[in-house]
Amino acid sequence: MSETTYTQLLQLSAGLLLLCAVLIVWRRSLGAHIRLLAVQGWALAGLVAVLGLHEHSAELLWVSVLVATLKGVVLPAVLARATASDRTRAREETPLINTTAALLAVSFLTMLAYLVSRPVLALGSTAAVAAVPVGMAMALFGFLVLSTRRHAVSQLIGFLLLDNGIATVAFLTAGGVPLVVELGVSLDVLLVVLILRVLTSRIRTEYGDADLDDMTELRD
């Protein structure tokens, strides 16, 4: 694979990742969120595959398969099942801040991401390193989604977005972390999502819907 192709593919997948992230902030439909998340998962897998091909690392290719399965298929499926039983509230109706404000926040957070990535960018001028701010920005967007969306599943989506961001940074800066850690991390994420999924359905039984605003019984 030539250097140019590599750079272009890398930039393409990075761009796709960021686009999906912005769209997640923009859109309100849970279904769309899940689909965007799946796309993002595939983009991430693609990014890893590109890196693997470029560095001729079989390990990274295996990881790419793992990522594709987990983030592109399994997790979106889990989320889709979580929303499937709840046709009445498949939309995030009133986020805590309106879409315009959220998008303004997105631009601010992107700037912040570039600002804080300076030390990483100083590591070298490779294409991979240059894309690191995208990962940072995704993580920050994930946080934004987490703290402004009312629906339980939205929080899951925010969490996964955050996780994707971190994974992106990990792959771009270091070609991932040691495999044992990578496996542990993936397992952890999967388990967390499963736990939250179980809790979501319990919340729905207890509260009638999955609106987190009702959950303020524990307070001082």
Binding site: L196, L199, I203, Y207, L212, M215, E217, L218
Partner: peptide
Amino acid sequence: RRALEAAWKYVV
């Protein structure tokens, strides 16, 4: 309900 709420907050 309270335990559920606590668990959710804790995990997230």
